[in-house]
């Protein structure tokens, strides 16, 4: 069973569906038309570019290029994670990158070597596609985790300092905050794991099934990817907190104020 290609003409028919929200936006004065059209435009351009790019990536299937592209994807994830947080980029970009890279590479190579048992573990089809799924899905958790950790210590300066004054070392003093932020970072992923298949048919499965594989194969891939997302999220949140602490705390164990974007005086 081969997937049915959509001709350009047919695709135009799909795009024509946009007329529905545009029409409704007009009638109900939703004011969404401009935003909707520009977003759709961006999406089409971005996807066309990545489509062309992936075509060649799969064609060449070169180790160096594949790995480089994965690194570019990680960098993009790092930037959007930092932009979503209240932290200054310059200070934390390197530790965040290292944490994301370690988490992503560890999980992907584990999958490629032990689970999928690829002969060529740098194969673009698996490396890039799985990498994208992991990064895309663990990103939100990461942002929540990092942000909450530093924000709550700043908000509870008095409590944090009290912990230090009780004789807690750095690790003991940040532990309650670490626990809370990792827990919240993982919650949505864990929750979506429980509803998958019933509430939502995930993109990964749709893709695999349309690609001609049987639902059994799709299910196996989906189980693998969901667990991998949880694993890579927890590794990267934990590593990010551990690795950024060196630049975010003074040697006295006190949180620096200059790591935040808005230096609000409290």
């Amino acid at each position: 069973m081969e997937i049915i290609d959509i001709s350009l003409y047919s695709l135009l028919l799909a795009i024509l569906l946009l007329a529905v929200p545009v029409f409704l936006s007009r009638i109900y004065g939703l004011g969404l038309t401009k935003l909707l059209l520009s977003s759709a435009g961006r999406m089409i351009v971005q996807l066309v570019l990545i489509g062309v790019f992936l075509k060649y990536l799969f064609l060449w299937n070169n180790t160096v290029i594949n790995l480089s592209w994965l690194i570019v994807m990680i960098l993009a994830a790092v930037f959007s994670a930092i932009r979503g947080s209240a932290m200054k980029p310059g200070k934390i970009i390197l530790p965040v990158f290292v944490s994301f890279a370690l988490a992503t590479f560890t999980v992907i190579f584990y999958l490629n070597i032990f689970v999928i048992r690829l002969d060529y573990i740098f194969d673009a089809r698996y490396l890039i596609v799985l990498g994208g799924m992991l990064l895309g899905n663990s990103l939100r958790g990461n942002i929540v985790g990092i942000d909450l950790f530093y924000k709550s210590i700043r908000k509870e300066t008095k409590k944090y300092q009290y912990l230090l004054s009780l004789g807690a070392d750095y690790h003991e003093a940040v532990k309650p905050y670490m626990r809370e932020s990792i827990r919240l970072a993982l919650k949505p992923t864990i929750a979506s794991m429980a509803t998958i298949g019933i509430v939502a048919l995930p993109g990964m499965m749709t893709g695999v099934i349309l690609g001609g594989a049987s639902p059994e194969v799709a299910i196996k891939y989906q189980i693998m990817i969901m667990i991998s997302i949880v694993v890579s999220t927890i590794i990267s949140v934990l590593l990010t907190i551990l690795m950024t602490s060196g630049v975010c705390f003074t040697k006295y164990g006190v949180l620096r104020n200059d790591i935040f974007l808005k230096n609000k005086t409290e």
Binding site: Y162, S165, G167
Partner: peptide, 12 residues
């Protein structure tokens, strides 16, 4: 910090 007992104004 291990030798001093500190009590803050507001205990949070």
């Amino acid at each position: 910090r291990q030798k001093v007992a500190f009590i803050d104004q507001e205990i949070s």
